[in-house]
Design a protein around this nucleic acid. Structure first.
Lengths: 123, 123
DNA sequence: AATTTACGATACATATTGTATCAAGTCAAG
DNA sequence: CTTGACTTGATACAATATGTATCGTAAATT
């Protein structure tokens, strides 16, 4: 995956013309065309504008990940921050039920891993 | 936050000299110095190398997020993918209990939002 | 005090990018 | 079928940005 394909994909997905998107980004249509054809590379500022506009991460834009929304919704983060996790023993006190089915310890472990990741405690 | 500060921070954190990091990235020390002082901008390729080397996201590098590990652990993703969510009514069938306490609808909603975000279903 | 190490700043050759412009393809209206 | 509007790709060249060698400086080392 490359920047060009992502850009073209996102633009098409929203039904925009190069002209329109270029205007939104404050660049010329020619420049955008170059980006989509991987002839030129947008600078970081433009990359940021694209990410903001389409609500995707730059990592997704440049093809480093398939996950478009690396930038998680603030409310999602808020949820994660609500949970109180201290040490590894939380697993014991942790009960998760989805659709009436209790999560397996393994699944619960993954969920906790997520919350921790969100809290930047993995580093 | 800007690229320069992030770069300098990460490099210092690992106790590397500009010379060493530059070598790892395959660029000149002068170039790295420019980046750290926000005099020049690294291209996407270099940005990717830095992200790989320090295991952070590009979004973090360029200062779009404070969260360094935007790139989530694969096992975390695996957990999210396990859950089966279909439509907005999942809320009804959704029961989450943490530390013996049922999550409020609002909290549950946020969790669902997270799972959906993970699945890229928000678009 | 001399040397070494690490880093910032500058200058300039080189490389990259921005944009105007032309070309080609598609499509609907007449 | 033909025309004209739309949309996008390609090219050329001026404008801009980048890479690197080099010098200056400060702090640490001997």
């Amino acid at each position: 995956m490359n920047i060009g394909s992502r850009l073209a994909f996102l633009r098409d997905q929203r039904g925009l013309t190069q002209e329109e998107l270029a205007a939104s980004l404050g660049i010329s249509r020619a420049a955008l065309s170059h980006y989509e054809k991987n002839r030129r590379e947008p600078d970081t500022e433009t990359l940021g504008k694209v990410a903001d506009l389409f609500q995707v991460s730059i990592d997704y834009l440049v093809g480093r990940t398939e996950q478009s929304n690396t930038v998680l919704d603030p409310e999602v983060r808020q949820f994660a921050d609500r949970l109180e996790l201290s040490d590894d023993q939380v697993l014991e006190h942790f009960t998760l039920t989805v659709d009436g089915r209790k999560l397996t310890p393994e699944e619960a472990r993954r969920f906790i891993a997520f919350v921790r990741a969100e809290r930047d405690m993995k580093i």
